[in-house]
Design a protein around this nucleic acid. Sequence first.
RNA 1: GCCGACGUAGCUCAGUCGGUAGAGCAACUGAUUCGUAAUCAGUAGGUCACCGGUUCAAUUCCGGUCGUCGGCUCCA
Length: 638
Amino acid sequence: MIKVIYKGKTIEGAPGTRVKDLIKQAEGMDTPDILLAKVNGVLTDMAAQVNADAEIVPITFNDEEGKKTYWHSTSHIMAAAVKQLWPEVKVTIGPSIDEGFYYDFDREKPFAEEELAKIEEEMKKIIKENAPFIRKNISKAEAITMFKALGETYKVEIIDGIKEDIVSLYSIGAFTDLCRGPHLPASKKVKAVKLTKVAGAYWRGDEKNKMLQRIYGISFPTQELLDEYLNGIEEAKQRDHRKLGKELDLFSLHEEFGAGLVYWHPKGAMIRKEIEDFWRAEHLKRGYDLVVSPHLAKIDLWNTSGHTGFYKDSLFPVMTLDDNDYLVKPMNCPFHILIYNTSKKSYRDLPLRWAEIGTVYRYEKSGVLHGLMRVRGFSQDDAHIFMREDQLDEELGKLLEIIEYILGVFGFQSYEVYLSTRPEEYIGDIATWDKAETALKNSLEKAGLAYKVDAGGGAFYGPKIDIKIKDALNRVWQCSTVQVDFNLPERFNVNYTGSDGKEHRVIMVHRALLGSFERFFGVLIEHYKGAFPVWLAPVQVMVMPLTDRNNDYAKKIQNLLIDAGVRAKFDDNNEKIGAKIRTSTMQKVPYMIITGDIEVETNTISVRKRSGEEEKGVSAEAFVKMITEKIKKKEIAI
RNA sequence: GCCGACGUAGCUCAGUCGGUAGAGCAACUGAUUCGUAAUCAGUAGGUCACCGGUUCAAUUCCGGUCGUCGGCUCCA
């Protein structure tokens, strides 16, 4: 007999008893919600046999692993459906992803949107049949023979790369796939499924390989959960910064005159100005100085920096003037170095923290451009810190502090933090890379920030810490970045004179907190759904007289606000008050002030928030005090 | 850059199975002076993305270019 621990109690069973029977015995009833189990910490099929003492932990859709398995199994069902409909299609891989699953197929013709419905129908048939997922272990050689016979060349390629001698297969209906598993017990566990989109994707993610046809989908144990998911997508569309940017008149892109180049409209530019003012003030408080650099430099500078080599794919083409070649800047760093090198620096001068809102241009591939999030011309909130090696730890600590503070003011409290290490293409030697990576790691640990390592994700000149913000569409955007650079100081001979009278190499750190104003603006629009906090709102108050009779009084109120530094506008359109309120509400103006005969007589104002809340009989002075206070404190709630 | 879908008025979108287009909102004009999310009437607005081809005739069919959207790859 074997002993099994389940939810704290111990049961006994014959060796070879299936997981599902052990669970049934322990629970004393059927448990259809349990999809699979962890046996001694290993995810295992319900149909697997248990041959030794074990601890069994049940897994349902509510567990992360349960979702992954659920979606992975659904991808197999989809592949089975596709093979049923088009036997000539070759299968490749079909994993689960953060939200749902995909499967990549090799097929001459891409899948048409209409064909998705057909595949869904076929999947429903397989689900109705309640086909079980059957696991079988066979030798590698057998598997290769089998998939060769089936003409599944991609599977053969995958098996070739597997080290173990035994591989596992899973069958669902007539379709057998190479798969590590585990899987759901049977297809009927999938209650609601939706194929969401088709797309091209390279085999093994390499653009040199053949393009495959990918189908994305998602599935749930109930129709309600699927509806909830689809509603969430709909809600996210309402927050799309491209849609809101148009509706709120914040920015535009003029594709006919250059893709990925952003035009900030007056309202958008006002928000940017507020962010910039805040940003500059916070930097000056923390011992930064501001610098300004040009947009162009001769190619020699970029040859020295290494950009023409390692960064050539992202450069705008050369401009030739009087036999000189110029490049528009993709980064600000070489310029700051030129400023540094105009005079001898002492160890006493360091650290030097030089910040610039520097507009750079990078030639991004046309297919990756996306609203404000991915553009070709953008303004980085850049800074370079020149320091001695003994100052690195302290400076990195200060950087993490300012990042957390500034992002916090905008309401971003949690982020994903990555430590990106040496990529395949890099400059400098490995020892200095290791030194830099260790310094970054130490600073993260000291700051108590949880992080993941993005191996090989560093810039060509140094390792970095990336801090990513999640937007409303659940996309993760890289905003803050801190990059140690041991390499540019080398190339440009960036030195200081030490207390020993000798020349020493500086350590340079590049960093951006918001990343770029364009991307950060896009993230903010989606984060707030266009309803900015008062301090950022381009129009903070709309004063609206009820009739022309009240214009003078309303003007007086507006001037009172303007004098107090509040961005107050006046709505004297020939419209009823309901229409004025509607317009300003849709424009997400935080406060509306309504003045009619009553207000004039009682010398008060009527205040309405964009949320719909209203308060009558307010004194103008009290309102000015309240709003200026809120602006000063940068309160997010109105 | 690659795969797919798409490009009609300032915006959102109809429409023409080849005979040069329409609605709502916005704009403008006039009337209305109104109490917390749309007052009424009228006017104006489009080389149907751009360039070629087929055709008696192209916004519609075909090809190319540019761009947008969803992905892939890449990144602030």
